[in-house]
């Protein structure tokens, strides 16, 4: 069984591969437009001081996203 988890559970410094999104509506498109498409690689760069939002490396850009938005993005952990 592969290691599937919400993006918000991706530990700092770790990398994951996006499998699917359970998010619907406009939010979904917004995240897609930023490059969070299926099979793209995403890395947790760092947490903000309070732990939310979290900064991710998406296709070479650092984007800060909130836990509320990322928990609906399902990823596969990569070692």
């Amino acid at each position: 069984m592969k290691n599937l988890t919400g993006l918000d559970k991706l530990p700092v410094g770790m990398t994951g591969k996006i499998k699917y999104m359970t998010e619907s509506s406009n939010n979904r498109r917004r995240l897609l437009d930023l490059g969070l498409t299926q099979n793209s690689i995403i890395r947790n760069e760092r947490l903000s001081p309070s732990g939310n939002p979290i900064a991710y490396n998406i296709r070479g850009a650092i984007m800060a996203l909130r836990v509320e938005d990322t928990k609906n993005i399902i990823i596969e952990l990569i070692n």
Partner: peptide, 9 residues
């Protein structure tokens, strides 16, 4: 140029 992949979109 430092972030070409996202920009190419």
């Amino acid at each position: 140029a430092t972030c070409l992949e996202r920009n190419l979109n």
